[in-house]
């Protein structure tokens, strides 16, 4: 049972990573790509970590895996704001539908 749940979470995680990459390829400007990478990839990592933590032999090993997630979230939150701000200061205008 736990093995099935764990495998399912790994596959769901892989799907979110895939969606993040797809967003990177398909979204029109750096701001929307940031949305895709910061949100989808982190959800993918979260699913993978929970999936692996379910298989862990004891609580400490599981918690160690889960400890990675908040760190990755903090990294994404900080880096995505820094990149967005940099893009803005470089004068990159957000893509708008009306103009297309």
């Amino acid at each position: 049972m736990i093995e099935i749940l764990s495998t399912a979470l790994l596959i769901v995680g892989a799907f979110f990573y895939f969606a993040g990459t797809l967003g990177l390829l398909r979204f029109p400007d750096v701001y929307s790509r940031l949305h895709a990478l910061a949100k989808a990839d982190n959800l993918g990592l979260g699913c993978v970590l929970i999936g692996l933590a379910l298989q862990a032999e004891n609580v400490a090993v599981a918690l160690k895996l889960l400890l990675i997630w908040p760190l990755a979230l903090a990294a994404s939150a900080g880096v995505s704001y820094a990149i967005a701000r940099r893009a803005d200061s470089l004068g990159i205008a957000p893509w708008r539908k009306e103009k297309q």
């Binding site: 799907f15 979110f16 969606a19 993040g20 797809l22 967003g23 398909r26 979204f27 029109p28 400007d29 701001y31 929307s32 949305h35 895709a36 949100k39 989808a40 982190n42 959800l43 993918g44 979260g46 979230l73 957000p94 893509w95 708008r96 539908k97």
Partner: peptide
């Protein structure tokens, strides 16, 4: 909310840029 956010942006990525209507 971050799970909802990831899910939402994943769906938008699957639908392509026609799903977007970005703004400030």
């Amino acid at each position: 909310n971050s799970i909802r956010g990831g899910f939402q942006v994943a769906m938008m990525a699957l639908r392509g840029r026609s799903a977007l209507q970005p703004g400030v």
